[in-house]
Amino acid sequence: MTPNSNESLEAVIQVAGLHKSYGQLEAVRGIDLRVHRNEVFALLGPNGAGKTTTVEILEGHRSRTSGDVSVLGYDPGKNDRKLKERIGIVLQSTGVERYLTVFETVDLFSKYYPHPLPVGDVIQMVGLGDQRKTLVRRLSGGQRRRLDVAVGLVGDPELLFLDEPTTGFDPSARRGAWEIVRNLRSLGKTVLLTTHYMDEAEALADRVAIMVKGRIVTEGVPSELTQRKGRTIIRFRIDGENVGLPEGLQLDQEVVNGAYSLTTDSPTHVLHLLTTWAVEKGIELEDLAVTRPSLEDVFVELTGAGPMEGEGM
């Protein structure tokens, strides 16, 4: 249990000391996790961080080496049908029969659940209303992804696992998917999301946990995580040759293509130094921006890598 978690909230997922080894390789090295009812929880991390292994243990797809895991009060390692009736799973690595139509696919899956949603409504909800009678094999990648979501939703689950739900979506399809997730929260569902899009986590998640090398390195509300970094980022570009910087200013990283970035706790002072220096030297600070760190900045600082390297896991 994390010390700062609110014990009064009902936990839908509880994980304590979870370990998973594949032979010599320790994929998950002792994580604790608590996901509350009716929240959207995002698990972030670069490639090989152990997110997929963790989520697949929670879904019952994988066994664990040690640790306590409870999902809706069940042990997912026991392959209990009662648990599966109450969860929905949308994975990247799963598929459906290619020679059935969208409607037939969702209809077939709806029969597995005791209280399914109306098949037509679910298809409408994911925006495949016009493709009801289209064979799965004729769907585009994004449409197939939406069908995955429909199949995950049709059982009216209390808890939904979404693994990289918008990978390969165009921006408008992405907004649509986000709308679905927000909609689920307003219906009282709990969502465990893994993603490598930081803006997605920032837009959707009530809480996030960042995993690196099998451990959770930080966890909390996105706005708190970015505040915890507690600093301001000043970014600008200088065209032409390297002109150095005024004395006393420290760059975050090497200048790449004329792009400068500084992190500071005293932005007023630094900006004053910087602008005075630039005016004196007759240098233009192109695209000057003063920003709070985004979740992506926190992520990069913690993982030492761009989140896009985590693609595909």
Binding site: E59, K82, K84, T94, G95
Partner: peptide, 8 residues
């Protein structure tokens, strides 16, 4: 795998 995750 999809079937395995469903309550059939």
């Amino acid at each position: 795998k999809r079937i395995r995750g469903a309550p059939i």
